[in-house]
Simulated scan of single mutants.
Amino acid sequence: MVCYNVLYCDVFKYLELMNSIAVFCGSNFGHMPEYLQLTKILATELVNRNIRLIYGGGAVGLMGAIADEVLLLGGEVIGVLPEKLAGAEIAHKGLTELHVVKTMHERKALMAELSDAFIALPGGIGTLEEIIEVFTWTQLGFHQKPCGLLNINGFYDKLNSFLLDMSKNGFLSEYHFKTLLINEDPADLLNELENQKIIYQPKWIK
Results as ranks from 00 to 15, higher is better:
1 M>D: 07
4 Y>D: 10
4 Y>W: 10
5 N>L: 13
7 L>W: 14
9 C>K: 12
11 V>H: 12
12 F>W: 09
12 F>V: 11
14 Y>W: 09
15 L>E: 04
16 E>N: 01
16 E>K: 09
18 M>L: 11
19 N>Q: 06
22 A>L: 04
25 C>E: 02
32 M>R: 13
34 E>H: 12
35 Y>Q: 04
36 L>Q: 06
36 L>D: 00
39 T>Q: 08
40 K>S: 00
40 K>F: 00
42 L>V: 03
42 L>N: 00
45 E>M: 09
46 L>I: 11
46 L>Q: 01
47 V>E: 07
47 V>T: 08
52 R>E: 06
52 R>W: 07
54 I>D: 03
54 I>C: 07
55 Y>R: 01
58 G>I: 11
64 G>T: 04
64 G>Q: 03
65 A>I: 03
67 A>Q: 01
67 A>M: 00
67 A>L: 02
68 D>I: 04
68 D>G: 05
69 E>T: 10
70 V>K: 02
70 V>I: 07
72 L>C: 02
75 G>N: 02
79 G>K: 11
81 L>V: 13
89 E>W: 05
90 I>D: 00
90 I>C: 08
91 A>E: 10
91 A>F: 09
91 A>C: 13
93 K>L: 06
98 L>Y: 10
99 H>F: 07
101 V>F: 02
102 K>D: 03
104 M>P: 10
104 M>W: 08
105 H>Y: 12
106 E>K: 03
108 K>S: 04
108 K>H: 08
109 A>K: 12
116 D>I: 13
116 D>E: 13
117 A>E: 07
117 A>D: 06
118 F>Y: 15
125 I>D: 07
126 G>W: 10
128 L>I: 05
129 E>G: 11
129 E>L: 14
132 I>M: 15
133 E>L: 15
135 F>Q: 05
136 T>E: 12
139 Q>W: 15
141 G>V: 14
145 K>I: 04
146 P>G: 14
147 C>I: 08
148 G>A: 01
149 L>S: 03
150 L>M: 01
151 N>L: 06
152 I>S: 00
152 I>W: 01
153 N>G: 06
154 G>V: 15
155 F>H: 11
155 F>W: 15
157 D>P: 03
159 L>E: 02
162 F>T: 04
162 F>P: 01
165 D>Q: 11
166 M>D: 06
166 M>K: 13
168 K>N: 15
169 N>P: 04
169 N>K: 08
169 N>R: 13
169 N>Q: 12
171 F>Q: 08
171 F>S: 08
177 F>L: 15
179 T>N: 11
181 L>W: 03
184 E>Y: 11
193 L>A: 03
195 N>L: 10
195 N>R: 11
196 Q>F: 08
201 Q>W: 08
204 W>G: 12
205 I>E: 09
